[in-house]
Design a protein around this nucleic acid. Sequence first.
DNA 1: CGACCATGCGCCCTCTGCTGGCTGTTC
DNA 2: AGAACAGCCAGCAGAGGGCGCATGGTCG
Length: 632
Amino acid sequence: MAAAEVPVPSEHFTQIKEQKLKPGDPEKEEGGVQRMETQEGAVEAEAEPCQLQEIRVPVESDRRILTLQAVHLTSQEVHLQGLGWLSVPHTEEFPVMMPQAESLLPLPSVLWLEQEPQPSLQHCVAISIPEALFPPEEVELMHFHLLRDSVQVAEEDQKLTPNLGESTALTKFEDNEKDQPLPEGGPDEEGKERFLFVEETPEDEGKDELVVTISHLSLEEQRDQPAPKQTGVPEAETTEPPQKPKGKPRTFHCEACQFSSSKSSTFTRHMKIHSDERPHLCHLCLKAFRTVTLLRNHVNTHTGTRPYKCGDCDMAFVTSGERVRHRRYKHTHEKPFRCSMCKYASVEASKLKRHIRSHTGERPFQCCQCAYASKDTYKLKRHMRTHSGEKPYECPTCHARFTQSGTMKIHVAQKHGENVPKHECPHCATIIARKSDLRVHLRNLHTHSPVEVKCRYCPAGFHERYALIQHQRTHKNEKKFKCKQCDYSCKQERCLTAHVRTHTGEKPFSCLDCNKHFRQKQLLTVHLRKYHDPTFVPVVHLCLKCGKSFSRWSNLQRHKKKCDPEHEKLATSKKGKPELRRQSIEEGPAWGNEEAWCPGELTLSHGGENRARSESLDEGLTCEMIFDMMDK
DNA sequence: CGACCATGCGCCCTCTGCTGGCTGTTC
DNA sequence: AGAACAGCCAGCAGAGGGCGCATGGTCG
């Protein structure tokens, strides 16, 4: 506030205020000089007590209100405070004669406590009015026509004419004027405080001019003023008829926010929100409130008192408005706020406002840590968890934590819940746990593609991926890869490639350690593992009947047909390889059962005899056998 | 001045849908 | 073995519903 920016005022102000607050001061109760108790009270909370009672707020365009207090300063005080008197040059436009007798008196003094630091800020003015010349009772209305560099004074009340005298034009004070003498005894030795309304409004459009109206409150306005209860000063009565600026209905503008009101009582109530004064204490928690109504509503939250019960359900509310809204949401479905761009309608205007952002793309809530901006505060708050790592939601069963409640809810339902609903694809009967994944499934597998995709194995083409996959599965057991040089055929292309090398003699895979060559990469890999990897632990398949071990599961199955025909009958219905165990090379005996080994296929020992076996590794095995072995 | 009502803001919630990492299966 | 694939899963954001509460307008 501008008042806070004013150099430290003299104690004089405080004294004036204290005097003013004295109840029953007859002079203050007279009409003509009115006070704005509540406004002052509001300001007092924020400003220093000795500062000018000045409230300001830009309201609408250029319209502002200054609430001033008439103060009386000696010239010395003015200088001490870095202030100055306004110069009062003569103006031809409003020639007013100053009575000689009044030469001892100062001209109506308007102090510019500060010049406008910003265009948006208004003047901060104090007015000193010599009561000997024009008692406050007589000062009813003045209009100051303010130009950028000059101020013209026009009196609307003829009573002021002789007193305003030569001060018909005011300019910002000049330093050379500040030594202007004050009248003997100074103005208002009693230090009486006067309150005037100064309303600053734009003059006619197009003119760089403002009209500042300084007036006392009319009788009607006095009644609108906050009750003098605080100070014990009763409302003043006046015999003067109410005076209002012609054609200008009074508007009260809050200096602390954008609020304005034509009713002083509303304005007064509003000003309380800028005050820390909370006289109504909750006896249960000692929380303080500004009004009895707020306190009552608060106490109701303690006691659970909800006097407004919904007639259609068990809900009850503290206020009637909550009940009305609840009924609209739950029962009447009345949605008065409709979007002009779509069919959306809402119960609350704020919801419509939020909805419209989805049309405009407006994102007023900017993340301070990344480029994200959201359309409402909650989304931003939720988003901030991505930066903080906060996971406020915990699964009650497994204590896993989640960033959003919905995520946890899905987790609980699908991990710990019973009869979890599944989602079945309408096209292929695939069951998928999550609807969103079903959507992905539909998008990937059942979306019609404009481009026909060919089968890998035949000329058939499909526009849907799912149909293609189903079709290709029909080729699954076909030995569709046939050798052109013999009758060999196989299911996998890589097997055919390896087979063809038996015709060409090509062995492109070489062991760098022993210079052996292999037709298939997999054979080289097996070779390296068996012969050159000291950490290699072979897989052994044991016959539980006789204890023989086999390196290959298929050999074990063949063995069991002879060794245990009954077991074999049972085993045919089972899958898996239950007799599998791993055995290290050092275990020797079990591993050394050569009879159990498929002759000439694999050996674990090193040396010359293994070369022959190693050779047969490449020569004797079919492609499928090798891959089967690798897989196992 | 309090009471009542309307309004607006903020908060929290649910539902929804997309995304990308993970994992098991298939080829 | 390894690539491709499809479902699982958590993370995250969009949209909107619902309510608590503060505040303003009006009236008695």
